[in-house]
Design a protein around this nucleic acid. Structure first.
Length: 390
DNA sequence: TCGGCAAGCCAC
DNA sequence: AAACGTGGCTTGCCGA
């Protein structure tokens, strides 16, 4: 597929070099001396050796860790320097990686940014996007969303975003054959709220938001090959508490533990795992005598059938999409894939029928090879820029 | 000057 | 000691 046509309309307003310099000056003042704010090593020495703050940890190279978790903890204790560094890093990241870099990729002939997709870029079967990577455009913060909003449709067209809702959890429910999860998806429930209700008790409709957040973290953890340490780090809770959640979860969904154990055993025996379509991902090192290497490969082998099946499904949809649109006399162009999302450019008077065709193709993409035990659901939205279309 | 590695962080 | 899956990009740093 040739990725076509994404317009970066104009330089994003707001992120001026002077702002970054200004924060840098404030940081120097708080540090009491000059240093390179972009150097984690120097920052760690200032925070933990010179200022004597507690809570630092040294990594394998012997340098102090200064990632956002560390700095957020320090900032919450009332320290200004780490808080300002977090501001600085956020702006520096957005400007260097996106605002500045993306503009150099605008093709003078098309006026658009064209990415490259590697079809075998990921071991699970996902695509990988590079030069530039258009699969990691910011969306989670307000400042970041301004960058996404800079991707706009030409006059007379709209950008249409169609994404699979919770496709990996639906695949988990399918492959692990979990009756409660299958029922929750069939009934169209909020899956994280439903999980919280099943694990912690209560009704999905009235679940405490804090419990829903925990259930969401558990759901993601399960897909990634959960550990109590990882869940604790993610939720900012004690390992023992995280271990309790995991224990309760597996008691409630024994089919998922069975599935994970069976997947590990299969991978150990054969050296590979399979997606629901039979495509294989190889993990020969799962037999390593090094416990770390083995554990890492076990987590990857648990995740690969889920992530890889989702990749197979969206690829099947993409293969069928061009013909499906043409047969319906629709002139929408498929522009981009972001793992569970397809972005189209569609004439503004064709948006509704285009959504209908795209949804039909995406929601039935597993068929006829695989008949899913849970429905696939596609959410769609259109707007003149990618932020509002998402 | 170029390369590779480490740290950090953006996305799903 | 590390400790949740898949990627890519930027900066700092160091050595060829």
């Amino acid at each position: 597929m040739r990725p076509r046509l994404l317009v970066l309309d104009e330089p994003t307003e707001g992120i001026q070099p002077s702002i970054i310099k200004q924060i840098g000056v404030a940081i120097q003042k708080l540090a009491g001396r000059e240093f390179n704010v972009g150097s984690p090593k120097q920052l760690g020495e200032i925070l933990f050796d010179e200022m004597g703050l507690s809570g630092g940890k040294k990594g394998k190279t012997g340098a102090w860790g200064t990632d956002s978790n560390v700095l957020e903890t320090l900032a919450a204790q009332g320290h200004d320097l780490p808080a300002r560094v977090l501001d600085w890093r956020q702006i520096q990241k957005l400007k260097s990686t996106y605002t500045d870099a993306l503009q150099t990729y605008v093709n003078p002939r098309t006026g658009r940014i064209h990415t490259s997709f590697a079809m075998t870029g990921a071991s699970t079967g996902r695509l990988a996007s590079s030069d530039p990577n258009l699969q990691n455009i910011p969306i989670r913060t307000e400042e970041g969303r301004k960058l996404r909003g800079a991707f706009v449709a030409p006059e007379g067209s709209l950008l249409l975003s169609c994404d699979y809702s919770q496709i990996e959890l639906r695949l988990l429910a399918h492959v692990a054959d979990v009756p409660e999860l299958k029922r929750a998806f069939a009934e169209g429930l909020d899956i994280h709220a439903a999980t919280a209700a099943l694990v912690f008790g209560g009704e999905a409709e009235t679940i405490d938001p804090a419990l829903r957040r925990k259930a969401k973290a558990i759901n993601f953890g399960i897909i990634y090959g959960i550990s109590a340490f990882g869940l604790a780090r993610n939720l900012g809770i004690e390992r023992s508490e995280a271990a309790d959640y995991i224990k309760t979860y597996f008691e409630r969904f024994p089919g998922i533990r069975d599935y994970m154990d069976a997947t590990k055993a299969f991978a150990r025996e054969h050296g590979y795992v399979e997606t629901v379509f039979g495509r294989r991902a190889h993990y020969p090192e799962i037999r390593s005598s090094n416990p770390q290497v083995r554990a890492f490969n076990e987590r990857a082998a648990i995740n690969a059938p889920i992530q890889g099946s989702a990749a197979d499904i969206i690829r099947r949809a993409m293969v069928r999409m061009e013909d499906a649109l043409a047969q319906s006399h629709l002139s929408a162009k498929m522009l981009l894939q972001v793992h569970d999302e397809l972005i189209f450019e569609a004439p503004d008077d064709q948006v509704e029928p285009t959504i209908a065709v795209v949804r039909e193709i995406m929601e039935n993409a597993a068929m006829p090879a695989v008949s899913m035990a849970v429905p696939l659901q596609v959410d769609a939205a259109a707007a003149d820029n990618w932020d509002e279309a998402h």
